[in-house]
């Protein structure tokens, strides 16, 4: 699976880091999303898919299943 994050849309809500801590983090500057692992596998991929659905701002997308 491949994940992309649009930092311009990100609302820094932290749902991604909460849901998939192995895949996402937030930066220290203004809390916007940082992708730690753009090609998550197995459990991380499941959590990442949940995070994509939960993100309130539509900043996250799955670019390859």
């Amino acid at each position: 699976m491949r994940i992309a994050a649009d930092r311009e849309r990100c609302a820094s809500a932290g749902m991604c880091a909460l849901t998939a801590p192995g895949v996402f983090d937030q930066d220290d500057e203004d809390g916007r999303v940082l992708v730690l692992n753009a090609e998550p596998e197995a459990g991380d991929a499941e959590e990442a898919a949940d995070a994509v659905g939960l993100c309130p701002s539509g900043a996250l997308t799955v670019t390859e299943p």
């Binding site: 932290g14 937030q26 220290d28 203004d30």
Partner: peptide
């Protein structure tokens, strides 16, 4: 909204 909200989001991250 984005400009103002981002003034505080860095201090409220999960970490």
């Amino acid at each position: 909204h984005t400009r103002l909200r981002r003034k505080i989001t860095g201090a409220l991250t999960l970490k």
